[in-house]
Design a protein around this nucleic acid. Structure first.
Lengths: 181, 181
DNA sequence: CGGGAAATAGAATGTCAAGTCTAAAAACTC
DNA sequence: GAGTTTTTAGACTTGACATTCTATTTCCCG
């Protein structure tokens, strides 16, 4: 579903990928395709957070922020710039048509934003950021910029846009670096 | 297609929307659905640029940039935060599976980025921006941030993320304002 | 080992969508 | 206004896909 979209993934594709030879299995474990999609969203949320939390959890300096940026860029390179964001792709496809999916995606984004915010807050507590920096707003801006960067990466098959927008946001945050305001 | 996705839009839906009562018409004017999708991308590209160019063409100050931001936010409100970006939604759905669509989308983004760049360049020429500001990079960052903002708006049904990321980018550009570096 | 519950197979159904085909209507040309 | 081309109707074909059903197998527990 990540590779071909929800609509572009048939139950048969799923069975094949799961190396399972009967639809009854799928319908035994999931009520229907929508329920399966919900599970996919949960799975992808955990996957993304699993990747991001280690990097965000110990932000203490701009080097840490840069390391996060580099890891994200590298991850997209590693997958040939295909696929965009695991949550973003689903959000684009489902937000307007599947309310339950949208709700779960919003919840996923909230967790993600939390993780970023906590990282930035840690930075602030360690004195790398000014007291007037707003971790919540900066986290939302960073996450949003990242979503755009991942979408543009997918379209361009090139990480330039992602790098540029993340660098710009990090520069923006640097305006709040101690001893600069 | 903008509202329900390409996959979620049947030929019948199209006939109904066009108030036409025969598939033969569709296939007379378009070879197949993919060709129609190409036309939709072109149409949406023109639509977006038609909306953006007037705002971007006469950027001469930060007020102009702010006016652009406000117009974008208002436009999303006007459509109840549904639908995301006319190009971005298509990009998310088609980039990985339809190479021709991807090519056209990339071309559309290039035109869009051009328009933003020219606006920023005008700002620089009018002395609102430093000579060391790079309109090309800033334009790419701005467009990318906007894509993320529109996607998040669609998911959250709320323009906060869009506002926040655009404000952050504009602040970032303001770092290049004359008499500030 | 034996009997009940859970899991799996695989065929089958119904729906819907993309695209085709034949023929009729309109428009254009001379 | 006859003949030709373009455009439109509308039925039809084909295939795919989500979901269901019946039957069989496997597992679990005493």
């Amino acid at each position: 579903m990540y590779e071909n979209g929800v609509a572009g993934t048939s139950t048969e594709d799923i069975l094949k990928a799961a190396r399972v030879s009967s639809p009854s299995q799928l319908y035994h474990y999931f009520g229907d395709k929508k329920a399966l999609v919900q599970a996919v969203i949960e799975y992808q949320t955990e996957h993304v957070l699993g990747f991001q939390r280690p990097l965000l959890g110990r932000l203490d300096s701009f080097e840490g922020l840069q390391a996060w940026r580099d890891a994200v860029v590298r991850a997209q390179h590693a997958r040939d710039c295909r696929g965009g964001c695991p949550l973003g792709s689903l959000a684009a496809e489902l937000s307007d048509t599947d309310p339950q999916a949208r709700a779960r995606l919003v919840a996923g984004y909230a967790q993600w934003q939390d993780a970023i915010r906590e990282g930035l807050r840690a930075m602030r507590e360690r004195g790398a950021l000014d007291a007037d920096a707003d971790p919540d707003r900066l986290a939302l801006a960073l996450l949003t910029a990242l979503q755009g960067g991942l979408l543009m990466t997918q379209a361009h098959r090139d990480t330039t846009a992602l790098e540029t927008v993340l660098d710009a946001m990090i520069e923006r945050i640097r305006c709040h670096a101690t001893g600069r305001a």
